[in-house]
Amino acid sequence: MSVDIQTVRRIAKLARIQVSENDADLESMTTELNAILNWVEQLEEVDTSNVSPMKSAVETSLFQRADKVTDGGYPEKIVKNAPRAQDNMFVVPRVVE
């Protein structure tokens, strides 16, 4: 499998990373991504027909906490680093539904 420039655009859109509108500027990026994809595709050599995917690097059960309120109550801290905030809320360009 390899990606073309259109696929790179689609992926960049999904990842919300602006890329150049000029296709020529995307050629080297496309080539690089394909080199990496071709390289990782050597995994196809491995017979994994009876193997389950690894789910976790630790063998333990999921810890479940008690239903107690232990956090919150500091809205100023929540917005402290925000590039734009108003009334303890984050400000973004108007979102239409």
Binding site: R65, K68, V69, D71, G72, G73, P75, D87, N88
Partner: peptide, 17 residues
């Protein structure tokens, strides 16, 4: 998270990190 779920709290009051 341990933040409360109460209805009607002030903006970002019921928010943890």
């Amino acid at each position: 998270s341990g933040a409360p779920t109460t209805f009607g709290a002030g903006p970002n009051e019921n928010v943890s990190l």
